[in-house]
Nucleic acid binder design. Structure first.
Lengths: 199, 199
DNA sequence: AGTTTAGCTATACAAATGTATAGTAGTAAT
DNA sequence: ATTACTACTATACATTTGTATAGCTAAACT
């Protein structure tokens, strides 16, 4: 494949960023408008890019530009739960207000959900008030992992240890007390696999 | 809003699943083909759904069905810089190894980039070793903000204060010393606007 | 000097897609 | 029974979008 000209590179970059932003490729006229020229010029660029093998033009459909190297769904959509209800057998996420997009290469779990942290109980683990935690739903935790635990209908994020006859919930905050519960009073909702903070 | 009929629900479900799968909504003819009827029937359904307030029909563009609540692709791709060079007038990101996808509703800045944190100098601000910080490029910082600072070609994340004749870089770690530099030895690369951690 | 190529304007036309209207049949509500 | 609505067929037409062709200019190449 012959190398691209500067202009062709810029057009290709626009195709990629437009597609990633909108989820679908631009029309020839949108390309022209963006660069300030007519669609026929855009069309010529597209045909040059196709001739050089970096895109494919899918006739017989509008917005039919295909970019082989472009990984399509790099984004995973995660619901932000306002409440979690301990349904049976599965947990029910309630008051889903929003969805946030996370990177599949970082958080690949289908079915993951998110919670907004309220309070300072985990500051020593780098989880601050207002942070989003990404949670992989699972019914059990390893000793010492940070997880989402249900106490009745209350969901809380703590570091979890298992002792004989007790589940120990340890806040990561020197000023807060460790709590112990009988195993039948707590239920694991999932493991915290990530943190996202907006400053 | 009046409730939807069974058929209208099925059409709406198809709109949603098609859009999530493909990234863009179907055409009226694709809807008709899927259900086995003509496009004019699909069109009537769409108008009924619009009348009932669950979708909007964006005239003046093809595939113009908008489903509120279903946001399109909210993904912003952010490069992860391995090095930052203090070019003039702009900074040069070097050794870009990867790109991560972040949520536009959280981090909307075009031109943002990301750095991988090495070390524990910011643990008390909830920024741990291995975290990604999202950075909005800017040449100056407000007093007390967390920013990316260039000392020569070395990039470091610190909380920044300005005193007379000195720039103060304060690590968020009790065991590390505060550093002061003459203003002409440091250069601001950007403000830390977010943190992403994979556990 | 002549030729090719990139990069554009201008315009025409074709195909895809959206929109509207007329009509039929069935169902539900008043 | 009448009205309104759903759910479709059939068809016409408007708009958007893709494609092609004929230029024109500048730069690069032979």
């Amino acid at each position: 494949m012959r190398s691209l000209t500067e202009k062709q590179k810029r057009v290709l970059d626009f195709l990629i960023s437009f597609t990633e932003k909108n989820g679908f490729p631009p029309t020839v006229r949108e390309i022209g408008e963006h660069f300030g020229f007519l669609w026929s010029a855009a069309r010529t660029h597209l045909k040059a890019l196709e001739r050089k093998g970096v895109i494919r033009l899918n006739r017989a459909r509008s917005r039919g530009i295909e970019i082989p190297g472009l990984r399509p769904a790099q984004a995973l959509r995660v619901p932000v739960a306002g409440r979690i209800r301990a349904g049976n057998p599965v947990l029910a996420l309630e008051e889903i207000g929003d969805q946030i997009v996370v990177d599949r290469s970082l958080f690949s779990t289908e079915g993951a959900f998110s919670l907004r942290i309220v309070g300072d109980s985990m500051v020593d683990a780098g989880i601050l008030d207002g942070d989003y935690v990404i949670v992989r739903p699972q019914e059990s935790l390893e000793n010492g992992e940070i997880g989402v635990v249900l106490l009745g209908d209350e969901a809380t994020v703590k570091r979890v240890f298992f002792e004989e006859g007790a589940v120990v919930l340890r806040p990561e905050n020197r000023h807060m007390p460790i709590m112990k519960y009988p195993p039948d009073e707590v239920r694991m909702a999932g493991k915290v696999i990530g943190v996202i903070r907006k400053i």
